[in-house]
Design a protein around this nucleic acid. Sequence first.
DNA 1: AATTAACTTATAATGATTCTAAAGTAGAAG
DNA 2: CTTCTACTTTAGAATCATTATAAGTTAATT
Lengths: 141, 141
Amino acid sequence: MKNHFIDRLRTSGLRPTKQRVEICKILFDRKETFHFTIDRLKKIIEKNTKSKISLATVYNTVHAFKNNGYVKEISLHGNKTFFDTNSENHHHLYDQETGDLLDIRNEDILLSKVPPLPKGKKIKKIEITISIENNSHNQKK
Amino acid sequence: MKNHFIDRLRTSGLRPTKQRVEICKILFDRKETFHFTIDRLKKIIEKNTKSKISLATVYNTVHAFKNNGYVKEISLHGNKTFFDTNSENHHHLYDQETGDLLDIRNEDILLSKVPPLPKGKKIKKIEITISIENNSHNQKK
DNA sequence: AATTAACTTATAATGATTCTAAAGTAGAAG
DNA sequence: CTTCTACTTTAGAATCATTATAAGTTAATT
């Protein structure tokens, strides 16, 4: 419920405004991971509340959530930036044909060898994206 | 030398213009892999030739090379698109602090388990990016 | 050399993201 | 409960990367 989000915002130093709570509802009030772009999120908010929200507010709030570790930015080709409400370390299956983006569970993937790192450096993050396509592509003749 | 590039362009159906040959020299006349953004490439060309080149030409040519498999687009966070003259299947080490981007050789990395794919889909491409940072971050107390 | 399709160019258009400055609101203090 | 202040939201302008356009230029063919 609402209080849950308010606590979450407070502990991040964010004032629980009407807009932020509304965004929280959409992003975090769900079982499944949610992948979104800023403008899609904006459209959903406006449909849900039947009122306008400023684009800048959506950007600011999502970035605040990102900085506080509630959402994660995803690297994909293309012009728009995607975010993911699953901020744990995990990976993605991406279908460029349909635009579908699916989380890969940690137990479903295993990187068993990593390269030597430059002196004085350590791993900060590993991102694996597996792009998929229909079986019919490049079929054997 | 020059003829090498001209052949390479011809076999891709690209006319070997002055500008394209110049871009070829910068991209392919080197031992090491080269990672670049469009505007950095433009600056290098202008420095080398001491004359201007149109931004649109750089974009068009790099995209033509991409479509012909001479360069590869790299997914990284951030606003600018990076390209890589190593168009083989390979992966990257990325140091966000310095902006350094290094190729990982195929024998230095091993993905030993991949997730189940949706029905009728197959793997098209796998991209792994390992972000690194200085050892001094989050040091044990 | 003449012809033509491909190419380069400068500039305009677009689209995503960020900035700005003014008006609104949450929370603290009285 | 009112006042005050700092934080927020907002609309619109500004910016940045990229793509489109239309006019002039060039490579290759005759």
